[in-house]
């Protein structure tokens, strides 16, 4: 198994719903609480597993705005795991990279090793925390099947987030990646991140036919055109009882 997320950059509107859902679920989740310091003060700051950033590609007027959510990529070559001296960081058989909260000594080394900014130290708890892929949802057999999904995936209003097994070629995630050419971020670093990003789709084009484009021919400007339409309206519109907007 190779569990992970697919994120669709073509539909993500950058609404932060997934980020807050993640915060909400995980506050009382397996690595909770996610402490917040100075919550009502000058420098509110807390632990989040998922953060959304907006970028602008290219310059006005051709610029595009791209919203990029980022959470743990559950890398196959997760250096965050190999650098961890205590064994707190580990990768399960299903690919989920986790931090065993009881073993971590809070040295930050794993966060240094992570290229994607996926790990955040909970300064109040003294331990490293990160996206668990909502293991406490997907593993919870007492939840109905439809609910065994990460909180961020369930909540995303644009369905820009998919969860599944990348090892299974028929899974929703594998199919989406194949169809849409999903890409990994910074593969050159060799972490083999599992999460994939679907690039913006090619823009749909509307080909305007010559018929649609053709300007009405008339002389005499507006009055001429109206005159022409007056003459033509018998052909343009049949009796009210006919055709009936529906029966061809």
């Amino acid at each position: 198994m190779k569990l992970g997320l697919v994120i669709d950059l073509d539909t993500c509107v950058g609404c932060h719903a997934c980020a807050v859902a993640c915060k909400q679920w995980n506050a009382s989740g397996t690595t909770g609480p996610l402490s917040d310091t100075d919550p009502y003060g000058a420098e509110p700051s807390g632990v989040w597993f998922n953060r959304i950033r907006n970028y602008e590609v290219d310059t006005h007027p051709d610029s595009k705005t791209v919203n990029v959510p980022m959470s743990c990529m559950h890398c196959e070559e997760a250096a965050c795991v190999t650098v961890c001296p205590t064994g707190a960081s580990w990768k399960r058989e299903d690919g989920i990279v986790l931090v065993d909260q009881s073993k971590c000594m809070g040295c930050n080394l794993c966060a240094w090793a992570c290229p994607y900014g996926a790990r955040e130290l909970d300064e109040e708890s003294g331990v490293m925390k990160k996206c668990t892929l909502c293991v406490d949802r997907i593993d919870d057999q007492s939840l109905p099947e439809s609910q065994r999904q990460p909180a961020c995936v369930l909540t995303c209003p644009t369905s820009a987030r998919l969860f599944g097994d990348f090892d299974d070629p028929d899974s929703e995630v594998s199919r989406a990646v194949a169809e849409r050419g999903g890409v990994a971020q910074m593969p050159e670093l060799g972490y083999a991140p599992v999460n994939r990003y679907l690039p913006p789709r090619d823009k749909p084009q509307v080909e305007v036919s010559d018929d649609t484009r053709a300007e009405a021919q008339s002389t005499g400007g507006a009055a001429g055109l109206i005159g022409k339409w007056m003459k033509r309206q018998r052909d343009a519109f049949d009796r009210l009882g006919s055709r009936d907007g529906g029966d061809a």
């Binding site: 506050a27 009382s28 989740g29 397996t30 690595t31 909770g32 609480p33 402490s35 917040d36 310091t37 100075d38 919550p39 807390g46 064994g87 707190a88 580990w90 986790l98 065993d100 909260q101 009881s102 073993k103 109040e124 668990t132 293991v135 406490d136």
Partner: peptide, 14 residues
């Protein structure tokens, strides 16, 4: 400081 949670977290032990 806020440390909102409704139950003691169940850690997954390695």
């Amino acid at each position: 400081v806020l440390r909102y949670h409704t139950h003691v977290a169940v850690n997954i032990e390695r």
